[in-house]
Design a binder for these strands. Structure first.
Lengths: 190, 190
DNA sequence: CCAAAAGTATACCGATCTGTATAGTGAGTG
DNA sequence: CACTCACTATACAGATCGGTATACTTTTGG
């Protein structure tokens, strides 16, 4: 990837995320990247391709970020689940969040045959699979149910963060996940 | 509201929801409504105003739907909480769901001074307030925490439904809410 | 050294965008 | 009957959309 292409992708990512995909034109992207439209089209070919690479890059970065977070986390099964929420919290602080870029992109991309579609659904499937693997170390016979519940808490927290429904929803989700896991780890206490 | 204006609002609502706000032009709205652009502008003045009325109408309908659902629900406090999830489930079945229209609109409307912004945030605040009132009948001294958790489960379920992350997320959220409420109603069992 | 690659600058294309103007029709009302 | 209101039909304006064309310059690697 050439330096100009990198600047294009950076500018596009910021603008798409903050203003929405359809609201941002290629002229603006080129101007913000300090690049001519010719360069932009020489590197990417189309706006659609920029959208695809924006989402693919975001997906890749998030997966790397989360994987790294998990690699250095407490290996205890429930601690690893909580580490996911910690990673999301840290991510949301850095990438001043208007919510999940995949969810937001999905609001604008209706056609399932759009080349960006599998990236969006793929990330959600990846997260559900991750929660499922983590849940299997906690409640093997009901990992699916536990993973889905964690997924709902997590997605809900991202939305609540993006819409600023109440302060610090991700730490709140983490606490609730912790309480939930305590029930699964010690299911006979009730 | 004149018949033509109604058709415009109906067409706009469907198109905005399915394809996104910025992706739908006024020419298309007018054509789908079987109306000339002149009529459209005579009734609404601007596309922005159509967006505002689309969201306001959606908000109003949802609040009426949910209020009606609650009015006929089992008056037991935890049953009323579960009735919210039942209402969302029924709503999602009818309005073939691409997720929450407010969340989706928020992805496209970045400017907080946009006249549609308070409608979006207002609905989320209304939902949180509702959950808080319901939670006060269950755990008065910790209604805030319980309400926020219910909010996360609910929002997460709507997103999961829209993105089709796994089947029937709203009933799943309902079940988890039920388990959660059992802990609050009988907190001394553990 | 020299050719290819990567870039700038600028002008342009057809389509579509929101919004307006003009002219006329049909129904209902005081 | 005359007036208003809601509406149709059509054309247009200015801006912006995604994308292309032409000509030139800079950087860089074999």
């Amino acid at each position: 990837m050439t330096p100009a292409a990198l600047r294009v992708l950076e500018a596009a990512a910021r603008l798409f995320y903050e203003r929405g995909i359809h609201a941002v034109g290629v002229d603006l992207i080129a101007a913000e990247a300090g690049v001519t439209k010719k360069t932009l089209y020489d590197r990417f070919g189309s706006k659609e391709q920029i959208v695809v690479e924006y989402l693919a890059d975001r997906d890749e970065r998030w997966q790397a970020f989360l994987t790294q977070h998990l690699a250095t986390a407490d290996p205890a099964p429930s601690a690893r689940v909580l580490a996911v929420f910690d990673a999301s919290h840290a991510w949301a602080l850095d990438h001043n969040s208007k919510g999940c870029s995949m969810v937001n992109a999905h609001a604008e991309i209706s056609d399932p045959s759009h080349p960006a579609y599998p990236i969006i659904t793929g990330q959600k499937r990846w997260m559900l699979d991750l929660f499922t693997r983590l849940a299997e170390d906690i409640a093997p016979d009901q990992a699916g149910i536990l993973a889905r519940t964690l997924m709902l808490l997590h997605e809900g927290a991202l939305v609540a963060h993006g819409l600023n429904i109440f302060p610090d929803p991700i730490p709140h989700a983490r606490e609730q996940a912790q309480a939930l896991l305590a029930d699964w780890v010690h299911p006979d206490m009730g």
